[in-house]
Design a protein around this nucleic acid. Sequence first.
DNA 1: TTCCAGGCGTATC
DNA 2: GATACGCATGGA
Length: 273
Amino acid sequence: MNITDFFVQNNDLILRQSDLDLDQTLDCGQAFRWVRVSEDCYHGFFLGHELTISEEPEQGVFRLHGVSENEFRSIWFDYFDLGTDYGEIKERLSDDETLCEAVKAFGGTRILRQDPWETVSSFIISQNNNIPRIKLIISRLCEHYGGYPSFEAMKDETVESLAYLRSGFRAKYIVDAVSRFNSGELSPETIGALATADARTELMKIKGVGPKVADCALLFGFHKLDAFPVDVWVKRVMAQYYPEGLPDCAKGIEGVAQQYLFQYIRAEAKDNL
DNA sequence: TTCCAGGCGTATC
DNA sequence: GATACGCATGGA
C-alpha cells in the first residue's frame, strides 16, 4: 500500500511516507549532489531548486524545510517519485529469496526522477571512478557555474577549459556529450520518448557512453525502470546469485531491483572486511 | 608501491 | 563477437 500523505506545518512541508530512507535514496550512488549535513538530514538540489530534508523518526515523518504545498506538488513530489507505489514493487520482488533479503535491508530506496542531462554527464564522470571522487568533480563543476550547468551553458567548454575539474580522460567525453546535445543530434525529449533499448542506442552515440553509463542515465534521468545498469558490483551479485539472469518477478522493474541488489552486495562486502 | 573505483575506446583475433 | 589493454586521478 502506498501511503504518501502530507500537510503544511508552519513553513515546512511534512511528509509521511513508509518507503523512504534518506541514506538509501540520497546517498546510494544514484545522485551525487546531496550532502548529509547531520544524522537524519540532507541538503541538496534539483535543477534550480534547493532542499533541506530531515527525518523525524519518532514521528515517522519527513520535514521538507521551508517548502510550500505548491512547491511540493510541482517539484519534490515528482523528484522523489511519490506517485509510484514502492510497497507494491517490493512485494513483487520479494517472491525471490535474495531480492527479498535485499528489500528487507534496503526497502527505503526510491528511484529519483533526476534531470536527464545531469545524469548523462554525471555518469560519464562516474566511469572507472569512485563515488567520493565523482562527487568531488561534480561539486567543482557546480561551484564554477553556481549550480549544475545545462548543456547550453557548457557549449563553449573544451578539454582545456575543463581541466580544473581534474576529471582525467573523461573530459573529452563530456565535451562530446555537450556538443551532441547542443547540435540537436540528441535531445532529452526525443530520448525520453523512445523505448529503453532505442534510447540506449541513442545515448551510446556519445563517446564515453557505453552500456553501463547509458543504463544509469536511463534509469535515474529518464525513469526507465526496465534499464538494468551492470557495474562491477552488480556483476558480482549476478555471478553469485543469478547465473541464469534475474527472476521473472523483476520483469519490467529490473532497475529498481538493481538498486536494492547494488546496496545489498556492497553492504555484504563491507561486512566481510 | 600497487591496487582499485557505479567503464569505455581501440586494437587484434 | 570476444578478449586484452590503456586510460587520469586520488584514496586505501
